[in-house]
Structures are given as C-alpha cells and as structure tokens.
Design a protein around this nucleic acid. Structure first.
Lengths: 212, 212
DNA sequence: CTCTCATTCAAACGTCCGTTTGAACTATGC
DNA sequence: GCATAGTTCAAACGGACGTTTGAATGAGAG
C-alpha cells in the first residue's frame, strides 16, 4: 500500500525536522508537530514510539546522505594518496553545507535541524546526534593527523572539534544575525557556495598555521 | 535587612545559572530551580516577575564583568595606538574564558550558562543575550577592520561571528566530548589558560590568512 | 463477502508547567 | 506596642505536555 503523496510517517518526519530545527527539542511539542503535519497525535507513538524516537528517526534520515557523501569523498581522496588538510576540510564541510543548503526549500530546513540537534542544550540529544555522526569521525581525525604531521594529536582533535562546531553553527543559522546586519549581505546572505568557500578558507588557515 | 548568607534572590540567580546552563531555558523548570535553591516557587515571580525575567537578570549579572573587562582592555589597547588583530582577539577571548573559567567552582557554571544562552534554540533567548552583549561588539568590529585593512568588511564580520560562536561553544563545553575521548585530555581537559591560548592561536591564524 | 491487519481517530490518562492568590511571617520605624 | 513594608509560604489556577486506550476505518487476500 502506498499513497501517491506523502505518507503520514513522511509528513511527521518533515515537519519534525522543521519544528525541531526552529524551536529545539524541548521547545517543540508533539501537538505542534502533529497539527502542522495534519496527523493525529497518536500517530507519533504508532510510527515511532515516542517523541525522542521521532527525533532519532529524523536525525538518522537527515544525516544519512551527508555521511554517505563524506565517506564517498574520503574514499576517493585516500585512493589518490595522502590528502591535504584543505582537501579533508573541504570533504567535510561541503557535504554539510552544499548538499544541504542547495536543493530548494527543504535544504535550509534540514541544515538548521542538523545544526541545532548537534548542539542542543541537552547532552542526551547531543549524544544522540553524535552516535549518528560518529562513524566517519575517526577516519577524518586519522587523515587530518597524517596531513598535519607537525601538529600534536590533541591539537588536531581541537581543530576538528572547532570545525564541527563552526559547521553546525552555520548550518543552524545561529550565526546569521537577526534582521538588521550592518553590511548588507554580511554573513551567509549570499549563495551557499560562497559561505562554504569562506568557511573552508577560514578553517584551512586555522589548521595550517593555528595549531601547535 | 541583610541576611549573612545568600539572599533568596541571589540563590535563585545562582541556581538558575547552573540549571539553565545544564538543560537550557525550555529544558529547565522553575520548580527545579526553586527546589534546588530552597525557595518557594512564588519567589521567582516576586523577585523577578517571570521565568524569562529571571533568565534576563541572570544573563545581565553574568555578562557584566565580562563586558566590563572587554571594555577596559579595548580602552587600554586603543590608548596605545592601533591594536593588532591578535591583541583584539585576545582582548575578546580572554575575558570570556579566563575570567570565567578560573575562580573556583562557579567559573565553569557561569561559562556554561553564558555559552548556552548565546546559542539557545529559541531566537527570543538568543536576542536576549545579544542585547546584553551588543554594546562592545561594534567597537570590536571597527577595530578589527582597522587591523585587517585587506579584508572586506563582510569578511571581518564573518570572522567575528566565527569567533563569537567558537567562544560560546567552548564556554558551554559543548565541544567537550562526553567521557571517553581517545587522547587523554584532548580538548580543554587541561587548564583553562591553555584552552584560551589554543583558541586564540587558532583564531589569529584564521583571521590573518583565512579571510579574503 | 469476510477475514485480517495496518493505520487513523477522538478522547482521556496522569503529570508537570508558569503563574497567581491571599494569608502568614519578619523586621524595622514610630 | 503598633503599624508598616518587605518577604515567604502553601495552595490552587488553567492549560499544555507526552503517552495510552480502544474503537473506527481502510484496503488487500482468500
């Protein structure tokens, strides 16, 4: 059985993505989600089991293509020899920003959702995200260490965490100042490709010369 | 009338700082705060008026010494001529990390509180923080622009936001991975001064060579 | 048509939420 | 001592929360 339009399950995931991204986990009620998704409130527990399970499913769905693309790029880079730090940073940032900011209207929604969950006030939620993001992390850390032989392992880890954090902040648009920024189009107001390039340049410089 | 120990008002602010920092605004109930503060729940509305007003008062109290110190350093730097980017970054980061991470047991509590509020999921809360932090921002932006004449104003603003975000993430300890980090003492596990130096070096490199 | 099973539904569950009330307490000034 | 103003208190307010229930609905298989 398949409905030609979105199934209830898909609508719940889509709206959950949007609302969790806007208001955070604690700040978003199941009732707000189910009303917006035109679903009965019991549908959440039927399809997912609980509010947290709905969040987990949404995180898994949102992260899957990002993780896949990161793995693909990592495979491709490592097949050609030892990647540079810039190549690695690019392979990490672009799937998070490009993949997710482009693609019509839902791109920014998914990006904000991912960014918010990654740094939710609740450690429980953050760990839930980390579990979904972990698998590729170790590979990046190892490759970065090889690309930066002069940097201590703690420094490479420090840089990696900073990269993770900055990416999440830009994804969640928490760094986009409310309405009235002084220079018109200061931050990421322009096309997403430019934000990715700016962020990559920022991080490459920091990795190459800002680690001891 | 003065109680020799902490007043109810002070206890509420102290516990609010701690709990809001741990669970976020939405994730922390007034009842949890008042129970921990050994105060009646009506005391919040008597002393502050509402939950949000309690948060506002806590933010104001926590930010005051940070803003004062930043202004003092900025005055001091500008009295000696045009400060370098590194001096400006240091004058911004150190009051946020040093001042607040040192000083006994309450330091990390205040730091986490500030960092969490700065990037709370709710835009309303973030604006509340920004209002308390704004006054010094314009001065930093202008001074950074002077110190980096080759960088476009949007780039300076971009770097400033990244600095703001990274500082908040480290303050909130959201970048401190749960228990089992691979290298023992990877991130900021060591003394806070080292974290400040690492972060400053990271940012200086990014500002000096990572902006177009 | 009938049985089956997945899905949806309105309604209620108990709990916790932020806020308000009005009385009780406490100390100070007269 | 008495009034006064500042503070604390137990109790209750209406409402929203996540979750559960059991019946209704729908389509597909025999």
């Amino acid at each position: 059985m398949e409905t030609p339009v979105e199934s209830t399950r898909e609508r719940l995931l889509n709206i959950a993505e949007q609302r969790f991204g806007e208001g955070g986990y604690e700040g978003t009620s199941l009732r707000a989600i189910t009303v917006a998704a035109a679903a009965n409130i019991a549908a959440v527990n039927y399809h997912f089991g609980s509010k947290e399970a709905l969040l987990r499913a949404a995180v898994a769905r949102a992260m899957a293509p990002v993780n896949t693309e990161r793995r693909r790029r990592l495979d491709q880079l490592e097949a050609k020899g030892e990647p540079t730090a810039e190549q690695l940073i690019r392979a990490f940032i672009e799937p998070g920003l490009d993949l997710v900011l482009r693609r019509g209207e839902r791109g920014p929604v998914v990006a904000r959702f991912i960014g918010r969950v990654a740094f939710d006030p609740s450690q429980r939620i953050r760990e839930l995200y980390a579990a979904e993001s972990d698998p590729v992390e170790a590979r990046y850390l190892a490759a970065l260490q090889t690309a930066l032989p002069n940097a201590a392992p703690e420094s490479v880890a420090f840089g990696y965490l900073n990269m993770l954090g900055l990416l999440a902040l830009h994804q969640s648009q928490a760094l986009t100042r409310p309405p009235g920024a002084e220079p018109p189009g200061s931050d990421d107001g322009e096309d997403p490709g430019k934000l990715a390039e700016n962020l990559i340049a920022f991080l490459v410089a920091a990795f190459d010369r800002g680690l001891r």
